[in-house]
Design a protein around this nucleic acid. Structure first.
Lengths: 223, 223
DNA sequence: TATCATATTTTGACATATCAAAATTTCTGG
DNA sequence: CCAGAAATTTTGATATGTCAAAATATGATA
């Protein structure tokens, strides 16, 4: 049984591997940053994870999940995301405030209870942020998603995923009805200004910078 | 912020204090037994809790909660019992299987979420086992105590207090599992015979005279 | 290529929580 | 009151997870 610290490292490594398209090796600096610990701590944990065959660790290189490590990471993510669903669906919490709760609860819940929750929720495939929920078997399903910066002007899209858990940002997304599942239209792609203008529901259009737009992943509906 | 280990010790001490009617001081042996650790570990933890002013510790004497320690213990108990309610009410788990889940979740839940759960459940006053749920303020609502002679036939009660320190009597109480904290059912109230028949756990029912029954104070759970 | 900034690793320390076993204190029966 | 039993405390060790700071390696650039 991995400790919750180990679970957190593995989860972070998984997420960092996904976030880093330069290659799926995570540096000690990034790992330490993501975990909020010093670089020395990250190094010693990397070694200890490698001893447990949960990561491959190359001195001065970095760290990468093994198959076993990946399985553990996905199990933690499954817990996290199902808990987020539960808090939103059953208890009516706002999707912007469930992340921190789930961060703690994900280490304290049994497989049995998790299965109950899954059943109770009707076996959802994405969490309230649109992030895919890994299966009990430890697999993850991806649909082809595009960043909001990449779609053509005039396109109709469905918001699929928001790649940032920051509460400020989630509130912004909320305010403009850009939650996962909602439809939106891309009115302007201004490459010169590095800005994207989108419009959702009956709200007025909103213009955001490309760094923000890059964090909003969508599925193309038309255009 | 007390660690979850500290929370567990305080909770145990509280429960042991209630269970021990000889006086509310808990010995290292009992504490170690209840926590599943060695006596040496219990001693060193007792000292450390005393340093934090959460318990009063007398070497070779034992340990007793301070007001602060009691407040922490009751907060943990509140979490535990509300979580048990949630698992039974909302997720349909059986009341016999929720204890272990709650044991872990009670340390991983925020006050905010707990309040939501409380509200969602309609502010229950007892958990699925009939144990009272402490208030957010850290007090325990003691329902008014009733003598065993006063309750209706068929009622479910929890033994709360035994108003006699006589060894003979306490042994009798013990033998029939009528210690404070245990649940029992009043099978017969025979006013003509001045006798009460009660039954606890898996033991056969026992009939006692009204003078004896008058010394056993109970809380009404149902009926 | 020599140097310097940056990243990484090592080292020594600390806090928490635990155990086993030795030492000590308290209790109890004769 | 005293000896042995039982409970308690002490001691020394271990595992986990962390930091600060020193030592070392890597990589970019002049």
């Amino acid at each position: 049984m991995p400790s919750s610290t180990v679970e957190n490292y593995l989860k972070r490594i998984f997420l960092e591997q996904q976030a880093e398209p330069t290659g799926d090796i995570v540096s000690m600096k990034n790992l330490a940053g993501a975990m909020g610990v010093t670089a020395g701590t990250a190094t010693s944990m990397a070694k200890s994870l490698a001893d447990s065959k949960l990561v491959a660790y190359e001195p001065y290189g970095g760290v990468k999940l093994t198959a076993r490590g990946r399985t553990v990471a996905l199990r933690v993510l499954r817990r996290h995301r199902l808990i987020e669903c539960l808090l939103v669906e059953a208890l009516g919490l706002d999707w912007s405030e469930v992340h921190d709760e789930a961060e703690k609860l994900e280490h304290a819940i049994s497989d049995k209870l998790l299965d109950r929750i899954d059943e109770f929720l009707g076996f959802p495939s994405v969490d309230p942020h649109g992030d895919p929920i890994p299966t009990a078997g430890g697999e993850i399903r991806h649909s082809a998603l595009t960043a909001l910066t990449e779609v053509e002007q005039g396109a109709e899209v469905r918001i699929a995923r928001v790649l940032d858990q920051d509460e400020q940002f989630l509130r912004f997304v909320d305010r403009h009805m850009l939650r996962p599942g909602t439809r939106a239209r891309v009115l302007v792609q201004d490459h010169a200004a590095e800005a994207v203008t989108v419009q959702s529901g009956k709200l007025p259009a909103v213009t955001m910078g490309r760094t923000a737009a890059a964090k909003i992943m969508v599925e193309l509906i038309k255009g």
